[in-house]
């Protein structure tokens, strides 16, 4: 096992890992959570939720808000957001823009919430 063989292994592994990244980015789609009738089988999974923001607050560098669709809302928490992301979400909240969030659908103190992972408008 010399440098040439090891380099061959390394290049092969780099290519495979990049292909996996590409595959995940292109083909993985999180299931959509319907706020009007949330599916409990999606608990502890990554889900997509669309809606408008309400009750926006920043405490101890953690962002708390609700994402709502008509009358149904769900709590969202975003741990340690960057200033840019806080500003973007604040903007969406202020101008009542609909955004799409990806996060983990979980229970906190028996109440459903989403731990935000990423968002897009």
């Amino acid at each position: 096992m010399d440098e040439k063989k090891l380099n061959l292994f390394l290049i092969l592994t780099i290519i495979i890992s990049l292909l996996i990244f590409l595959f995940c980015t292109l083909f993985f789609k999180a299931p959509i959570l319907d706020l009007l009738s949330p599916d409990s089988s999606l608990l502890e999974q990554v889900v997509l939720v669309s809606g408008n923001l309400k009750d926006f607050s920043l405490e101890n560098n953690n962002l708390f808000f609700k994402i709502c669709n008509l009358s149904s809302c769900i709590d969202v928490v975003y741990f340690n957001p960057s200033k840019t992301n806080v500003d973007l979400l604040q903007n969406a909240f202020s101008f009542k823009k609909e955004i799409k969030i990806t996060g983990k659908y979980t229970l906190y103190q028996n109440k459903p919430e989403i731990i935000l992972y990423k968002f897009e408008d």
Binding site: E3, L6, N7, F9, L10, I11, T13, I14, I16, S17, L18, I20, F21, C24, F28, A30, E44, Q45, V46, N62, F79, N80, K104, I115, Y117
Partner: peptide, 28 residues
């Protein structure tokens, strides 16, 4: 609270493979 979600397992594995290979490639 910097934790991964379980659904990121595949990305976690590919990140490890990429990191180890790229690091050793650069160092070699």
């Amino acid at each position: 609270k910097l934790v991964l979600l379980k659904s990121d397992l595949v990305l976690f594995i590919s990140a490890i493979l990429l990191t180890v290979s790229l690091t050793i490639f650069i160092l070699l």
